[in-house]
Each structure stands twice: as C-alpha cells, then as structure tokens.
C-alpha cells in the first residue's frame, strides 16, 4: 500500500498549514472575535518566514520571524477590533489587502524580485517509524491536545470561552475583556503566521506571491466544520487536507472526477453543515459582536 502511505503523507503536509491557522482562529473566535484576516496573516507569515530564513541562514529562525510577523498582523486586527472597536469583517478585509500589498512590496524592495523570492533554507524532514513530515506537522498535531487542555482545563481557557459567550459576565467579575481578547487574537496571528511559514519553508523553499491561495479561508471553514472544537478542527483539517491532496494527485490526469470537485468540496460541505442539514454547528454566542 505504498500509494496510500504517500497519500497520507501528502494529506498531512496539506493539513498542516490549515491546522495551524484554524487552531489560531479557534482562540480568536472562542474569545468572540471573528478573524477573516487569517488569509492575509498566513501570507505575511509565509513571506517573513522565507525572508528570515534567507537573511539569517536558518529555517528555524525564519520560522520564529514568520510567527512574530503573524503575531504583529494579529495585533493590528486586535487593536482595530478589540481596542478601537472597528467592525471585525471590515478590519479582516483590510488585513487581507494589506498583506497582499505589503508582501508584494517587500518582495520587490528586499529581493528586487516579482512573483517569487530566491530560494530559502528549508525546514528538515523528521522521520518517525510511521510518519515522514516537516517539524511543523508534528507541532500542529501536538497543538491539538495542548489547545484542548488550555481551553477546557485551565482558568485562562475558561475565561477565554466565557468572554466569547458573554463578555458582560466576564466584565462583571472584574476581568479585562479587552486584555483577554487581545491575547487571543495576537496568539491566533502567531499561529496563522506559522501556518503560512509552513508553505514557504516546509512545503516549498521560497515565497511565492499570493501563495496562500485561499488557505486562510479554508482554515476558517475547517474551524466551523470542526464546530469550534480542537478535535473537530483536527478532523476537518485532515479531511480538507485529504481533499487537496487528492486534487493535487489528480491534476494533469484525465480522471473520471475533475480535481476541482475536490477543491470545492470543503466549501460545499461547510455550507451544508452550517445550514443545519447535517448536524448543527453553533458559534460562540458573542462572536462578531462589537463589544459595548
């Protein structure tokens, strides 16, 4: 079953950036802040990951820079929506535009290049008896139980979930709604940045303009499809990753089913689930509300 093994490895590789970004989105949305800026934040992480790796000569340092840049973009979204109370959809739209503009601008000014960056030192591949994947894949998988533990077994996680359900209650206990949400959104940016860095340092070894190609939105879909729960998100990301892996494998073949079917499948399924035609998916109660 060599074919299946390769398909599984490809699935994990495709699922990794989705999982990192979706877990990031989980923190943000569980705290009540919609984050459609995941797409742009991933793109920024992909660029700075590659740029850091090239300039510092180490993919690991590049990874750190990618996460940091994602956190900074998360910070912009957090400041705009949580502190200044801007509409989160408008702010997310702006984040996505700024990311495209800024990465294109920096690609040209830093490397004199259009389209793609020079090649960057790549992350190593770690081989286990059953798995063969980039270190970020293991990190993403580890983050699933960690996130579950943080959200459901720690005091901070309880507060975070509470602020997403009923900010008034949290405020009445004397805790800062703003501080909790700022932390959550910045953390979501860092994780999305890591997810983006996987594209430029784990998947490829260079940055390509607009290389996220909608993965931030797929991560958002996975977050909803996984019902805002870490285990559900893991399942959704593996499933969506498998769809992309199959589409990739089919590309260039005259298959009975066109590859685009698999690329569109995550979006169709998410709509079906959201509409309640196949089990209900309920968001945090205060999600998207501009805090009073």
């Amino acid at each position: 079953m060599i074919g299946l093994e390769i398909l599984f490895q490809l699935t994990l590789a495709k699922a990794t950036p989705l999982l990192l970004a979706a877990l990031g989105g989980l923190y943000s949305e569980r705290s009540g802040v919609v984050n459609i800026g995941l797409e742009g934040t991933m793109l920024v992480g992909a660029f700075f990951g590659a740029a850091g790796s090239i300039h510092l000569g180490s993919a690991w340092l590049g990874l750190a820079i990618g996460a940091l840049s994602g956190a900074m973009f998360g910070g912009i979204h957090a400041l705009a929506t949580v502190w200044l109370r801007s509409d989160p959809i408008v702010s997310g739209t702006a984040i996505n535009l700024l990311a495209i503009g800024l990465t294109g601008f920096l690609l040209f000014t830093m490397f004199g290049a259009r389209g793609s960056s020079p090649s960057a030192p790549k992350l190593p591949v770690i081989e286990l008896p059953v798995l063969r994947a980039s270190p970020l894949a293991y990190l993403a998988l580890l983050l699933v139980p960690i996130t579950w533990f943080i959200l459901f077994r720690t005091k901070w996680g309880l507060r975070l979930r509470a602020v997403g359900e009923s900010p008034e209650t949290v405020r009445s206990t004397g805790l800062s709604v703003i501080r909790l949400r700022l932390c959550a959104v910045i953390l979501s940016g860092a994780l999305a940045g890591l997810g983006g860095a996987h594209l430029s340092l784990g998947d490829l070894s260079q940055f390509v303009e607009r290389m996220t190609a909608g993965r931030g939105f797929i991560a958002l879909a996975a977050l909803i499809f996984g019902r805002w729960h870490p285990i559900g998100v893991l399942g959704a990301c593996l499933f969506f990753g498998a769809a992309e892996a199959i589409a990739d494998t089919l590309q260039g073949w005259t298959a009975a089913i066109p590859s685009q079917v698999f690329l569109a499948l995550p979006f169709i399924l998410t709509m079906v689930v959201l509409a309640g035609f196949a089990g209900r998916s309920r968001p945090p109660a205060a999600l998207g509300m501009v805090d009073k």
Binding site: I76, A80, A94, L97, G101, L102
Partner: peptide, 15 residues
C-alpha cells in the same frame, strides 16, 4: 503593490 496598500489602509481607515 503600493496601490493595494493604499486600498488596504483606506478600508482599515473606514472601519
């Protein structure tokens, strides 16, 4: 790409 940055800042600004 500066043109896209201008657009992004404008959207952020309206928000």
């Amino acid at each position: 790409d500066i043109v896209i940055i201008i657009q992004g800042v404008a959207v952020l600004g309206v928000g």
